[in-house]
């Protein structure tokens, strides 16, 4: 039995490795590109691995200092973390209410979801006008709120699914013991849906981190997120490919750290999940 399992793991491991090669090749390509010079980007035959003496941080330094990359990392972090926290915080409360009390029924839940469906091109200018009235253009708030509109429905629906799958008896017994509704939510429900919370946090962060259209429209100078800064490296005549790749490498670091950090909670979900059914 035991050796059977090991064989199975080796076979699956092989499959996963092959898949991983496909998924990581573009990432590797980006990493290699970040060490190339401009004339190696379009070379024929392609330069796959740049020569050894080029393995320096010039493109990274260029992207971070020459083009405002440091500010961009900071701005994107602030916007993405805030959006993720607001979406998951507000979203988990709403999800609890929708899942447990079926407030407003299916129609109401669907309305919430539908706010993510609206084509952003159509809502961009009205939102721009709202934030102009509030004098919030070129502030973090404008971007955080715009991203929240699109991420909150996702968070609510994802968490709603997780809460619905929890047996209600646990909360009921806590309530009988005299815990408040919020207490039951906070101490019983939230820990039990931690895999869901973590997934929601991770993806709302990533969706915001990668968002471009609102980042462009709602900012000017004081706030300049990474996507706008990276897009700015593509001039009309001079696309700074290597700097774009270097910025891309820098831009995945927070995400990867977040995954490593949140992984533990997903894993913990394994033991928690035992409570289901």
């Amino acid at each position: 039995m035991k050796s059977n399992r090991t064989t199975l793991r080796i076979v699956i491991g092989l499959f996963l490795t092959v898949a991983l090669v496909f998924f990581l090749f573009p990432v590797l390509w980006m990493f290699l590109t970040s060490f190339k010079t401009q004339d190696q980007i379009f070379a024929s035959p392609p330069v796959i691995i740049p020569p050894r003496d080029q393995w320096n941080l010039d493109n990274y330094i260029g992207a971070l200092t020459g083009s405002g990359g440091l500010q961009a990392v900071r701005d994107s972090l602030i916007v993405s973390i805030s959006t993720a926290l607001i979406s998951v915080g507000v979203g988990s409360l709403a999800a609890y209410s929708l899942a447990r009390y079926r407030l407003g029924g299916d129609q109401f839940s669907f309305w919430i979801l539908s706010t993510r469906m609206f084509p952003p091109v159509a809502s961009a200018i009205p939102l721009f006008l709202i934030f102009r009235q509030l004098k919030w253009i070129d502030t973090y708030w404008a971007l955080i709120l715009c991203n929240t509109i699109f991420n909150l429905p996702f968070a609510i629906w994802l968490l709603k699914g997780f809460i619905e799958d929890l047996p209600v008896e646990l909360e009921e017994s806590a309530l009988i013991d005299g815990t408040s509704v919020f207490g039951a939510f906070w101490r019983i429900t939230l820990p039990l849906i931690s895999p869901g919370l973590v997934t929601a946090l991770l993806f709302t962060f990533v969706f915001t981190w990668n968002e471009f259209m609102f980042a462009l429209l709602m900012t000017r100078r004081a706030v300049r997120p990474l996507t706008v800064m990276i897009q700015s490296l593509a001039g009309g005549h001079e696309i700074l490919w290597a700097q774009i790749a270097a910025s891309g490498v820098i831009a995945i670091i927070p995400g990867i750290l977040l995954v490593i950090f949140l992984q533990r909670y997903i894993v913990r979900g394994l033991t928690m999940g035992a409570l289901k059914y």
Partner: peptide, 25 residues
């Protein structure tokens, strides 16, 4: 001088939106 940098491909979109919104930015 204060400089606002807009990506090459998005200049018209950005300027037009600010003009339409009469932001005076």
């Amino acid at each position: 001088i204060e400089i606002v940098e807009v990506p090459f491909a998005d200049v018209y979109q950005k300027l037009k939106t600010e003009f339409v919104g009469q932001t005076g930015a």
